[in-house]
Structures are given as structure tokens and as C-alpha cells.
């Protein structure tokens, strides 16, 4: 049985194709302003690459903020359900999942078999999501990847007072003018967002081991700060940004069975 999970996020649309429990392929591209067009193109190109047609597909499940734009999906689930389901598949012992994407941060408490028991969301404010690090990277004229890397070389701790991404940008620029080392500013940025994510996670319970998924899991500086804040090492899958798409494909398979 072949099933597909499509996760339409604020920044990228992701597709993952599953055959009898095995991942055949996964891909992503910018979701842009025409989410319906982008996801359709992404589906057709990915199928063509595998020499498959839509008739070979048993079920398609969409998830993510733009999940309603996927008109060809026959199942729809929230990203919380999808993320929780995929985490169970990868780490059956995990009960706390942190998911930080481009515009939202979430903490999920999962029960047995990946069932969602509770979740907290930080949304509609850039301070608690990838948008915060993106804005800070722009202010420092670095890519997000560079910002993450240099953060590991920090030797001094610098306080960051502003919570708001807009005010934090001005603070970062003042720090630069005061000749503060970029790596120390980078560390302060990641510590700040990690501390906000951890306090959100405390609302659902910080039960270790903890899994970290979503695009922000690629940021080594953030991961380092997060690990320090929880005094543990989070578990990160190979393709953390594909977690929700994977979960959607798994749910599609379960529901079709």
C-alpha cells in the first residue's frame, strides 16, 4: 500500500511517500502564496520521479497550517496529531515532543501509540518560532545556518532583554555597535528562544527523553542552547522537518487499512 503525507507549513510544503511502512522519498519546496498550485506540482513531480501515477496511491493525508489548500487529499489531520504519530514511530519511548517551525512552536505530550494527550502552542508572535532566528540572522547579515554554527564558539554570556523580534533586532544592532562578538550575540539569541520554548514545554510537562522536530532542529546553536536549558540531549530525527508529513502518511495508511 502506498500512502502520501503532505505538510503545508508557513514556509515550506513537504511531501513524503510511504510504501508498506518504508519511506520511498521525501521532498520540500517553498509554499509561497499559491499553496494549492505548489502542492499539486510537488505531488506530480514526486510521483513522476518514482514512475508512479495517482492511481497507485491508496490514500493522501494533508496536515500543516495550509492543509486545507491540498484539495486532492482524502484525509486531513492537525500537525499536532501527525507529529505525535511520527514521533511514536521513531521513538516509541518518548512522551514529550517539541516542534519548532517557521512561524509556530509547539510542545506535545503524547500517550501510548502516539496519541496526543495535551499540547501547548506558541503562535501568532514571532518570538517563539523560527521567524525570530531568521530576523536576528538578517540583522547580523548571516544565514540561519551560520548563526547556529558561530553560536557554538561563544565564550561570553551577553544578556538579551527584548522579547519581541522587532525590538530584539534593534538590540542586536546596538550590541554590534558596542563591539560585542557575533558568536556571543548568536548564543544570546539561541538561549533566549530556547528558554521560551522550554517554559512553554513545562506547561505540558518536561518528561525526558524529549524529541525535537521541525525545521529549527537543524539549527545546531538552538539545539545546543535547548540541551543546556533542559540539562539533557534531545533526540532529533534525520529529517526533522519531515516529521509531520511522515506522521500524515502513517495516519493515511492506518485509516486505509
Amino acid at each position: 500500500m502506498v500512502t502520501i503525507g503532505i505538510d503545508v507549513g508557513a514556509k515550506n510544503a513537504k511531501i513524503l511517500i510511504l510504501k508498506d511502512g518504508e519511506i520511498l522519498i521525501s521532498k520540500y519546496r517553498e509554499s509561497g502564496f499559491d499553496q494549492a498550485g505548489v502542492t499539486t506540482a510537488l505531488l506530480d513531480e514526486t510521483l513522476a520521479e518514482l514512475k508512479l501515477t495517482r492511481d497507485d496511491i491508496t490514500s493522501i493525508c494533508s496536515t500543516g497550517a495550509g492543509r486545507k489548500a491540498v484539495t486532492f487529499a482524502n484525509e486531513v489531520v492537525t500537525e499536532v496529531s501527525a507529529t505525535s504519530r511520527a514521533t511514536f514511530e521513531m521513538y516509541p519511548e518518548v512522551r514529550t515532543v517539541i516542534d519548532v517551525g517557521a512561524e509556530e512552536g509547539r510542545a506535545i505530550r503524547c500517550g501510548e501509540r502516539g496519541k496526543v494527550e495535551d499540547f501547548a502552542i506558541n503562535e501568532k508572535c514571532a518570538a517563539g518560532s523560527g521567524a525570530f532566528t531568521e530576523a536576528m540572522a538578517r540583522a547580523l547579515e548571516l544565514t540561519v545556518e551560520e548563526l547556529g554554527k558561530i553560536s557554538l564558539d561563544s565564550s561570553a554570556s551577553v544578556p538579551m532583554n527584548a522579547q519581541c523580534a522587532v525590538f530584539a533586532e534593534s538590540e542586536v544592532i546596538s550590541l554590534l555597535h558596542a563591539n560585542t562578538a557575533k558568536q556571543d550575540i548568536a548564543k544570546a539569541i539561541h538561549d533566549a528562544i530556547a528558554s521560551r520554548i522550554v517554559s512553554m514545554t513545562r506547561r505540558v510537562g518536561l518528561n525526558k527523553p524529549i524529541a525535537l522536530v521541525g525545521g529549527m532542529a537543524r539549527n545546531v546553536g538552538f539545539v545546543h542552547s535547548l540541551n543546556a536549558a533542559i540539562e539533557d540531549e534531545v533526540l532529533i530525527p534525520d529529517s526533522p522537518e519531515m516529521t509531520a508529513a511522515y506522521g500524515a502518511a502513517l495516519i493515511a495508511a492506518e485509516r486505509a487499512a
Binding site: 501547548a120 522579547q163 528558554s195 517554559s199 512553554m200 513545562r202 506547561r203 505540558v204
Partner: peptide, 12 residues
């Protein structure tokens, strides 16, 4: 930052 500082007292 009270949303964050108060979070431990406000479990869901």
C-alpha cells in the same frame, strides 16, 4: 516575560 515566567505555575 511573565507568560514564560508564570508558565510552570500554569500546567494545562
Amino acid at each position: 516575560a511573565i507568560k514564560y515566567d508564570c508558565a510552570p505555575c500554569k500546567p494545562l
